[in-house]
Write a protein that binds this DNA or RNA. Structure first.
Length: 180
DNA sequence: GCGACAG
DNA sequence: ATCTTGTCGC
């Protein structure tokens, strides 16, 4: 269990969460090196970011592991916006695996909006974090989706919440925030 | 000036 | 993110 201190500020998520993520990877390396993943799906963005360097990039550089940014909402950057036009494109996504590029005003493709499975309406926003191409990132993410949220992220979410629930209900030292 | 804009 | 209310599908 960790206690977050830095506040959440859009565009600065890495400064709040990456230290704990790096620590988790380090602890795994020390305790169960055989379980070290070949790639990490990060709950947040990679290069789809104000300065082209979101939490998925930070974690990749700090650990040397391939990382993929998987965001649930579109971060408004480089002219990208969740407006009517964007929503129309989402409507055009038919089956799971369908996607369309997220091209900023600068002409750069910052990521892809992905319909993660057949029965999902709201897309996932995939972007390169570290040591991976965008196409690979999108395909791998799609293959991890039993539901809208890719299973690795979903399980981390479910299990961390459960852990916090069981830890917080009993008397003990107070803690602020929670992290996976 | 305020709100929006990963979690 | 968190919280709350209501609905739909398996």
């Amino acid at each position: 269990m960790v206690s977050l201190t830095a506040p959440y500020v859009s565009g600065f998520l890495a400064f709040r969460e990456v230290p704990f993520l790096v620590d988790a990877v380090r602890r795994l390396q020390a305790k169960e090196p055989g379980l070290m993943p070949q790639v990490i799906l990060v709950d947040g963005n990679g290069v789809l970011h104000h300065r082209g360097f979101g939490v998925a990039c930070h974690l990749g550089v700090l650990t040397g592991l391939p990382c993929i940014g998987v965001a649930k909402k579109l971060l408004h950057v480089d002219g990208l916006k969740n407006n009517a036009l964007h929503k129309e494109k989402i409507q055009l996504l038919q089956a799971g695996g369908d996607s369309f590029p997220l091209t900023g005003s600068s002409g750069t493709v910052l990521g892809m909006a992905l319909r993660s499975h057949d029965h999902s309406t709201k897309p996932l926003y995939i972007s390169v974090g570290h040591k991976t191409g965008l196409e690979t990132a999108v395909r791998l993410t799609h293959r991890c989706c039993r539901f809208r949220i890719p299973e690795p992220v979903r399980q981390a979410d479910i299990r961390s919440r459960e852990h916090v629930r069981k830890t917080l209900e009993l008397p003990g030292p107070p803690a602020l925030g929670r992290e996976r």
